[in-house]
């Protein structure tokens, strides 16, 4: 589905990603773990096309297309979704209006008829059950006045409505209590299929108890230094990142 080769990228002239290689197939869940400042969020933002980040080398092929050549909205329309670590507030714009606008743009780009308000509302209500959100969220302004947990749940709701092919979850677990974490993870598990893929960026192993990855990659200092199965996450949890950082230094 997506193949990242020797990806270099940075912000304001500072290189953060120093040669990332990663291949994700449909039906797979990949976890990216690593200490603070290792470049996890940068990778997520670069894949989604944030304009502040500059790609300085390497390639990303998504669904046979050069992802890096695409505008952020084109990536979204092609099925790339980013669940933000810090979801943005848009005062005065209702959650449903925002999401309907997004969904219909994506449908349009894929040659589908836009949904009318009634059809959309029906879909939205269905998906809201997935993440156990109250009806009142439909009309509240996008993320405004939401608690940290509500914002994260709202990201998963958006993902559920937009049904991406490739979903990137950027520290979706941070700031969540255990109940919210279960709800978010439950949402992801229900959406998972053989046609889509997930890249789950996280600092802690905790989330991976609920979203079980097929592969775990450890990112240190802008490079993937270790890859393995789900047991790698448990290893990290027990030993911490220090050992792996040491190892990385030695091999570097």
């Amino acid at each position: 589905m997506i193949e990242i080769k020797n990806l270099h990228a940075g912000i304001a002239g500072k290189e953060i990603l120093k040669g990332i290689d990663l291949k994700v197939n449909a039906g797979e869940i990949h976890a990216i773990m690593g200490p603070n400042g290792s470049g996890k969020s940068t990778l997520a933002q670069v894949l989604a096309g944030h304009p502040s980040y500059e790609v300085t080398g390497g390639s990303v092929i998504y669904d046979g297309k050069d992802l890096l050549e695409m505008e952020a909205e084109e990536r979204s329309q092609a099925g790339v979704f980013l669940a933000f670590q810090y979801p943005v507030e848009i005062p005065g714009v209702s959650n449903s209006y925002f999401l309907k606008a997004g969904l219909n743009e994506i449908r349009k780009a894929n040659g589908q008829e836009p949904l009318d308000s009634m059809q959309f509302l029906k879909l939205l209500r269905e998906k809201m059950k997935l993440v156990e959100m109250a009806d009142s969220f439909i009309y509240r302004p996008v993320n405004e006045g939401f608690s940290g947990g509500e914002k994260k749940r709202n990201e998963i709701l958006q993902m559920a409505v937009l049904e991406p092919k490739l979903a990137i979850l950027d520290e979706t677990d941070s700031g969540l209590d255990i109940d919210a974490l279960k709800i978010v993870a439950g949402g992801v598990n229900k959406l998972k299929s053989s046609d889509n893929a997930f890249i789950v960026v996280t600092h802690y192993q905790r989330l991976l108890n609920y979203i079980v990855p097929d592969f775990v990659h450890v990112l240190v200092n802008g490079k993937i230094v270790k890859s393995g199965g789900k047991e790698l996450a448990l290893e990290l949890e027990a030993e911490g990142y220090d050992q792996i950082k040491e190892d990385a230094k030695v091999t570097a």
Binding site: G49, E73, Q77, L82, F84, P87, Q158
Partner: peptide
């Protein structure tokens, strides 16, 4: 902000 616009773009809105 760029972040607000990027958020919308990431949801398919130009």
């Amino acid at each position: 902000g760029e972040d607000q616009i990027f958020y919308c773009k990431q949801r398919g809105i130009n």
